[in-house]
Amino acid sequence: MGIEIRVEGLRKSFGRQVVWEDVTLTVPASEISALLGPSGTGKSVFLKNLVGLLRPDRGHVYVDGRDVPRVRENELYEVRRRFGVLFQDGALFGSMNIYDNIAFPLREHTRRTESEIRRIVLEKMEMVGLTGSGDKLPGEISGGMKKRAGLARALVLDPEVILADEPDSGLDPVRTAYLNQLFVDLNAETGATFLIVTHDIGTARVLPDNLGLLFRRGLVMFGPREMVLSSTHPAVDQFFNARREGPIGMAEEKDAADRTAEGGPPRTLPAPIPPQLMPSDGRVRPSMRRPGEWLAAHHVTPPPGSFVDETGRDWLRDWDTLTADHQRPA
């Protein structure tokens, strides 16, 4: 099962450049969370702070009670073993075949026999759809296969947290859709905590349980998917609806004159909130909520057309029918 990550008052700078300051959020255990933001807002830097590859100027990162920036080196090693990390490009060793790339953490960090390693590697390769590809080199496979191989390697130590740094970068929309479904299925099967950094709005709208937006050296918002997608906060509305009007410009910030000229409420309502991806087998993940649950609890009217899928089915109306054979796990 997954573990909770609690971040309090985090600040990070490089010299005079402040990346972000006073970032506070809680990544819920065993749920899928996504962190977005314009380029240059420090999303990848944030992930590196979570695992201690970078240290913040101030603040705390609590992983199962341990404050990562303050633990000793030997304790940091133990904390890192609880994480699996999928890097942007897969970060595979070019001279190793796919099987050996995936087996590497087991050989490096455990004393398992080769027969045990083989069983685990083949199991993870099957989970990510790479059965039969173990003999290929990274240079012989597609970008999507590299991502899946990197994900399999991140899974071999059965981590409690999976960090994915722009896993959809460089992938076409079809492969991105397959990868998103794979994340949902893996979360349902393993119960691990997922934190995914992405630029892809389509991914952010259908995949996670929770969403966050980094902008202007801070965290604008973090919370349940429905809360963020229904928000009229200018930066959130602009980013998640891909609009030019708003505080986000080609640079990290627009100047004051541009912001003043565009002041006022959003010009249109937020886009309809789509149904959330379900596991391939139709089960309901423990962290998955009934469509509209957050909105109803907070007396927020969903944008028109929300929770209707591409076939025209209304999930708000048909949820009980859709999940009749797959009750929420205890």
Score class of each variant (00 low, 15 high):
3 I>T: 06
8 E>F: 02
8 E>R: 10
9 G>I: 00
10 L>C: 00
12 K>N: 00
12 K>P: 03
12 K>S: 02
14 F>P: 01
19 V>D: 00
19 V>M: 01
20 W>M: 01
20 W>A: 01
22 D>I: 00
24 T>H: 00
29 A>I: 00
35 L>Y: 00
37 G>Q: 02
37 G>H: 01
42 G>P: 03
47 L>C: 08
47 L>Q: 06
49 N>I: 11
51 V>K: 02
53 L>N: 01
56 P>L: 13
57 D>V: 14
60 H>M: 08
61 V>H: 02
61 V>R: 03
66 R>L: 13
69 P>Y: 03
73 E>C: 00
75 E>H: 02
76 L>H: 06
81 R>W: 02
85 V>W: 04
88 Q>H: 02
88 Q>W: 00
89 D>P: 03
90 G>S: 03
95 S>L: 04
96 M>F: 11
97 N>F: 01
98 I>M: 03
104 F>C: 01
105 P>T: 02
112 R>K: 12
116 E>K: 07
119 R>G: 12
120 I>M: 04
125 M>P: 07
125 M>I: 11
127 M>Y: 04
130 L>S: 04
130 L>P: 05
130 L>T: 06
134 G>R: 05
136 K>Y: 14
142 S>Q: 05
147 K>E: 01
148 R>H: 06
152 A>H: 04
154 A>T: 05
154 A>L: 08
154 A>M: 04
156 V>Q: 02
156 V>Y: 04
158 D>L: 09
159 P>M: 10
159 P>T: 07
159 P>H: 08
162 I>N: 05
164 A>R: 05
169 S>Q: 05
170 G>I: 08
170 G>L: 07
174 V>C: 03
179 L>T: 06
179 L>I: 10
183 F>N: 07
191 G>N: 09
191 G>T: 12
192 A>R: 04
194 F>C: 11
198 T>R: 08
207 L>I: 11
210 N>I: 03
212 G>Q: 07
213 L>I: 10
214 L>I: 12
216 R>C: 06
217 R>N: 15
219 L>H: 05
220 V>T: 15
221 M>R: 14
221 M>P: 05
222 F>H: 13
224 P>Y: 09
228 V>W: 04
232 T>E: 15
242 A>F: 11
245 E>Y: 07
246 G>D: 13
247 P>V: 09
248 I>D: 07
249 G>H: 11
250 M>H: 14
252 E>D: 11
255 D>R: 09
263 G>I: 07
266 P>S: 05
267 R>W: 01
270 P>N: 10
272 P>G: 09
275 P>A: 10
277 L>M: 15
277 L>S: 10
279 P>M: 12
283 R>L: 10
284 V>Q: 15
285 R>Q: 10
285 R>H: 12
288 M>S: 15
290 R>K: 15
293 E>P: 08
295 L>W: 06
298 H>I: 09
298 H>W: 14
300 V>R: 13
300 V>C: 12
307 F>M: 11
311 T>N: 12
313 R>A: 15
313 R>H: 12
314 D>A: 12
314 D>S: 13
320 D>C: 13
321 T>V: 15
321 T>G: 12
324 A>P: 06
324 A>I: 14
326 H>C: 06
327 Q>F: 04
329 P>M: 14
